[in-house]
Amino acid sequence: MTVNRRAFLKLAAGASGTLVASRASANAVASNSGVEPFGVLVDTTFCIGCRKCELGCNQNNRDLPRRDSPQFEDKRVFDTHRRPDATSYTVINRLPTVDTKGEPVFAKAQCMHCVHPACASACIVGALQKTPEGPVTYDAWKCIGCRYCMVACPFQIPAYEYANALTPQVRKCTFCYEQIVTQGSRPGCVANCPNEALTFGKRSELIELAHAKIATHRERYIDHVYGETEIGGTSFMYLSAVDFKALDLPEQGDTPTPALTEKIQHGVFKGFVPPVALYGLLGLVYLSRRKEEVENTAADKDEHHE
């Protein structure tokens, strides 16, 4: 019996060992379809906090509750810190810092449309998808409403319609997918930015642009493009004159957020070998036990007969 217990424990340890030791590519999310993905470069040094991007977003995303244009001219909203929610996909905050000239610093927050999105990796039914063109899209029809995407997002972006009893949706920036992919125009926020603090283009070209801007105006920017490498890259990238942490952009490593879980996941299910092996092993132990038992019972019966 002791032997058996030990064997059981060994097995269990082995099984859990496989979970962590196995390797798998975490980059399975990346699309290799040959389409050059889009991106947006947010140059916060040009942002004046006019909230026109919020207006453009509201006008472009027809399923959001409509707000009048004057509502977006109210600057009192800057007195509180805001985050995108189920009714607004992007918001500007006036951050508690000033730039080198003592001017207030503003920054827009929205879905970053990560290159390796944790939300899409987390989604149990693939309602969130990384498209080859860059946007991370959401299909409410598939969604079961588990909100694991909200847990997974390192930027705390997806919002939920908690008040909706029957058909609640996960809400986040759409990158105006229809518009940029089928109509070839710019997302609502970019098109509406008066100071062109937002630049829409191919992600690779935007990275070049960002570095060229930094090289030209060393005094203007911190020498870093946020989102170029963070968590494997994001589609929305930021330039700043102040520390990025002050812009509500959390410090992140370069490893894609879902790398570890996908590694574990694909390790455990690599060709279904580990579970099948465990099944086979336990099955064999079970069968040998069973045989012994049948023999014993037979022996018992014989004894009784005598």
Binding site: L41, F46, C193, P194, N195, E196, T199, G201, L209, K213
Partner: peptide
Amino acid sequence: ANPTELRQPGLKGAYHR
């Protein structure tokens, strides 16, 4: 804004900047 010339702001951007 000219999509092939990302460094060059469009007219609206040029004015406002």
